[in-house]
Write a protein that binds this DNA or RNA. Sequence first.
DNA 1: AACTATTTATGATTTAAATCATCTTTTAAA
DNA 2: TTTAAAAGATGATTTAAATCATAAATAGTT
Lengths: 220, 220
Amino acid sequence: MNSIIQNYCSDGWNEYIEFHSKIVQVKKGDFIFETGQAIEGLHIIHAGKVKITTKNGNDTERIIRLAADGDIIGHRGFGGSWKYSVSAIALENTDLIFIPLKIFNEAVIANSSFAYAMMIFFAEELRESERLASQLPVRNMVASVLYNNYEVFGFAKGSETKLSFTLSRTDLASQAGVRYETLVRTLAELNTEKVIKIEGKFIHLCDLEKLKSIKEGELN
Amino acid sequence: MNSIIQNYCSDGWNEYIEFHSKIVQVKKGDFIFETGQAIEGLHIIHAGKVKITTKNGNDTERIIRLAADGDIIGHRGFGGSWKYSVSAIALENTDLIFIPLKIFNEAVIANSSFAYAMMIFFAEELRESERLASQLPVRNMVASVLYNNYEVFGFAKGSETKLSFTLSRTDLASQAGVRYETLVRTLAELNTEKVIKIEGKFIHLCDLEKLKSIKEGELN
DNA sequence: AACTATTTATGATTTAAATCATCTTTTAAA
DNA sequence: TTTAAAAGATGATTTAAATCATAAATAGTT
């Protein structure tokens, strides 16, 4: 079991939760859940990478979050009609721990510090989601996305700059909320400026500080 | 006292919370709190209207939420560094109930169903915030904003269509995430189509169903 | 009522990003 | 190991919204 539950539930409750949880294995590209489906529980990523997407109007898809080992997914639909408001798609073969909603709810009610921790977790998700409202120019959004990829995936073993996982250009564009061509051009620009280094499909973040200041609104 | 606390805390806890709460009165245009300030408690609107704003990069301000009687504000900064990530500004003279953080935290820990309700409250806020990621054309965003104004403020007494409170055009633009002139033009367009009716500063929502379908991505 | 503010409105021009059209490179398959 | 398919890259054109400019209308003040 993992992270927030392990840390905030009693040992007995951890055993109880673990007993009722199950392992879910999905392959690269598979949906873990889809918008509109009824929520039957909570997923925690045991090992793997996942993108959370939402539909923009009728046509395009936007990536609103990336998740990796230890991250909780599927909590956004809680309350209201208890349906997923987003979809989750595996970016690589992924193992998840599935906790039935009933068990999760029992644990929240019984472990007040767990309930408190879950509340804070949601608060942090909410703050994180404000990024989506920022409406900065493409360049800044792309920097923000690259930085977020670094935060979630980190650098590859043995490298100080290479992202350990590279989203497709299409996915990067979807996360930045811009068109594919626009993303590619912006990457090329950042590459020319040596803020990043493009190595085929792979991306090196050569100047994290610069990237950070661009994502925070530095104009240029 | 109000809403979620009254409903989910025991009578004894309600008395205790009420005893330690205080009434805060602010005038139209006053800040209730500002980005970066330390969080010392939670505000509940007793009577009044408030806009929650965030800074876009370095220049413009975006309204990310409107709040009225019974609504909780100031919860977004919970966790992390416990600083406000947004500002709250009174849209009219407003009375608020201020609950010190210490008291709120005690209540959450002691009342597990309150903790659960707070978690669900945050989950709903999170879902609501996805609207900001939608990236629809101006027309759709404006419809969304008008509909949200209706949801939060309702219609004026004795009217079936007139918004009970009218944001300035500048604020409407800020909420829609577009420039003032663009908002004005879009309102004029919706007015021509009889979806809304502009009456000086005031706005009538004549066709709520149409407005709803536009906000949900109907193209035109 | 006359005089400033301020707020609302609209036309003209510019611009950033989307769209359209190709082309190249990489990966996968037969 | 050639062929097909997918992913990445770039130039040319269009377009939606921003910006610039200015004019009405409304509200507030002496």
